[in-house]
Simulated scan of single mutants.
Amino acid sequence: MKKIAIVAAGGRVANKVISEAVNRGFDVTAFGRKDENHTQAQTYIKKDIFDLTKEDLAGFDAVVDAFGAWTEETLPQHSTTLAHLCDIVSGTQVRLLIVGGAGSLYVNPEHTMTLSETPDFPNAFQPLANAMAKALGELRQRNDVQWTYISPAADFQADGKRTKLYLRGGEELKLNDRGESIISYADYAIAMVDEIEIGNHRQERISIVRA
């Protein structure tokens, strides 16, 4: 049985990943800031991400970083929290899987333009996309960590259906046969747990879109 830790477990994506993993029989520990466990994780530990130590994450097969921040003051924490987690698992075989963003996906084969740089990208999401792209760039420099960065499709739907059908891409924005870039949180969670269970995309960014 694989042992998985979910960090920043209070968010909706985290809850989907936890539910998917538990339903598959994984041993899941959730770390969050709430007083009580509002997830399906078998174990819950109240602890801020910056307070986590090497001892906290030792013995897990994989750690899922579901951290999210949206305000101007907290956006830099995409970089600082990820750096902290990398330091904790540095030099170990513990996999670190990051719930990423779509804005940094490339939209051309030359990899000279990202989705966030296209004219139709919403201005409201630009600061978040920039912060997450910066964190990804810093992550790429970490050769001491078994990381996998998983970007969702451009249209990341919290209440979308669980279809169990998805396509896996790489660094470029991937469209399905209908020309869509869309994925539900539920299907994203399936892809995340699949990567933990059978995937081996170490020190790579992959992307997920509904089939």
Rank of each mutant, 00 (worst) to 15 (best):
A124Q: 15
V94C: 09
E171I: 14
T71K: 10
H201C: 03
D87I: 11
I182Q: 12
G169W: 03
M1I: 15
K134R: 09
A58R: 00
G59F: 07
E138L: 13
H84K: 01
D187F: 00
K161I: 15
T118V: 07
I190N: 10
T118S: 05
I183G: 00
V63Y: 04
A191S: 07
G32E: 00
G199D: 08
Y149C: 04
V22I: 03
H201N: 15
V94Q: 08
A14E: 04
N108E: 11
I182D: 13
D144K: 04
Q42T: 13
N37Q: 08
G160A: 05
R33A: 05
A153C: 08
L75I: 10
E197T: 12
L139Y: 03
I182T: 12
Q77Y: 12
S184H: 06
T53K: 00
L52G: 00
G103N: 08
M192L: 10
A41C: 01
I182P: 00
A124V: 14
N130Y: 12
V7A: 02
L128F: 01
A153V: 09
D48T: 14
T43A: 08
D27M: 10
S116V: 13
D194V: 02
I196C: 04
Y44V: 07
G68K: 00
R142C: 06
N15V: 07
L97G: 05
R12C: 09
T74M: 13
I183A: 02
